[in-house]
Design a protein around this nucleic acid. Structure first.
Lengths: 206, 206
DNA sequence: TCAAAAAGTGCAACGAGTCAACTTTTTCAA
DNA sequence: TTGAAAAAGTTGACTCGTTGCACTTTTTGA
């Protein structure tokens, strides 16, 4: 975008450019013809590089699509850490997922992108794996917040289920209702016996 | 096992025999050398057939390992349907999973099999997908049992989470503790507000 | 008994991904 | 400026999983 990209060697720029060219070509071709109807060779040729060069930039075909996994993990951790007083951990996660991951795309290009991913098994699975990578970080954030020992199985379970809730919701009639049902379950269980954590406020009930 | 397998054409027998030979050879070679160090060609040659024939019997390399997916689904549904009086659905599922899927293998061959699956990403993922295939059947069983409408999101959520509990548990320090923590969460949430289902008995508390 | 259907087989091919050489291009220091 | 050393790119051949095509065998049924 800007020409003076600060402390970026002339070389890094070319590298980033070809990388971007590859990702762009891939997404364009995938949307045009469908994931399985586009070969690695097609993409490499469209970006005018060799297939081997492509694999120097991306570890596999699926990775071409998930170029910007961005900072979902940080957002998840922040959703737990910075939640408003009196809000339970699962409630905060419910809010975050409803807001950031089921927000009906205002961008039509993004909607088509999601359609592509959801309708291609290989991409669905890859996205799922990426998403689940945040499990341990989220579990640790919950444990820290609850004053539980790191590796606490209950925190690990909540983290796992909260992330899975999004997966469960997609591919169901009403995703938002599905997320709500899932988190109703988790909220109920989280503040059941032997667990008192609604954030250190005067009240204990919501 | 028995020689007089009744209405089985002479042909079906040969078919079943080669299928078994393939599965046996595959498992043996995988255990000997590791999954990635064994090629389809190796397996086909060990069973004395062509690779094309192998793919007529199995849809892919992973399927060679999961030959007998058996009737896990029926067992899950039964665990819900035939649970003892006063036992909640998640409690019954906890019992079933602890009993049937974390039972420390008495069979050493089975232990090695599980070790192979868990240490091979491709097999782990494939097994996960297979396991999750039971999600809708389990959700429907729960809905039927609870008198909830089919496609009830709460039942779908419980089914999804109950199955995921097993996945969560594996690859954690103490799998049994992890399963317990997960189901503590689910049980607590399941019998929270607006949900009264502890199986039609005189008591309502456990 | 003889075709037609079905199942099995081999060969060749395709796509994803890797490997080992070789050719740039860039960088940095003498 | 020159001239390696390093990084990036290219090429081509290769492995491996998987599929399509053509061919042979077996089974079935009239």
């Amino acid at each position: 975008m800007s020409e003076t990209t600060q402390p970026l060697g002339r070389r890094e720029r070319k590298k980033a450019a070809t990388r971007q060219a590859l990702a762009d070509a891939a997404l364009r071709l995938f949307l045009e013809r469908g994931y399985d109807q586009v070969s690695i060779k097609d993409i490499a040729e469209a970006a005018d590089v060799s297939t081997t060069t492509l694999f120097k930039h991306f570890p596999g075909k699926e990775a071409l699509v998930f170029d910007a996994d961005s900072d979902h993990e940080a957002a998840l951790v922040a959703a737990v850490r910075d939640r408003p007083d009196g809000r339970s951990v699962p409630a905060a996660l419910r809010d975050h997922i409803l807001r950031c991951h089921l927000g009906t795309a205002t961008d039509p290009a993004f909607a088509r992108f999601r359609q592509l991913v959801m309708s291609t098994p290989a991409l669905r699975d890859y996205g799922h794996r990426m998403w689940m990578r945040h499990e341990t970080a989220l579990a640790q954030a919950i444990a820290t917040d609850s004053g539980a020992p790191e590796n606490d199985p209950a925190c690990a379970a909540l983290a796992h289920f909260a992330l899975e809730a999004l997966v469960l919701a997609r591919g169901q009639d009403d995703p938002r209702a599905a997320v709500d049902a899932a988190f109703d379950l988790l909220e109920g269980g989280w503040q059941s016996p032997a667990r008192r954590t609604a954030r250190t406020s005067g009240q204990d009930a919501e």
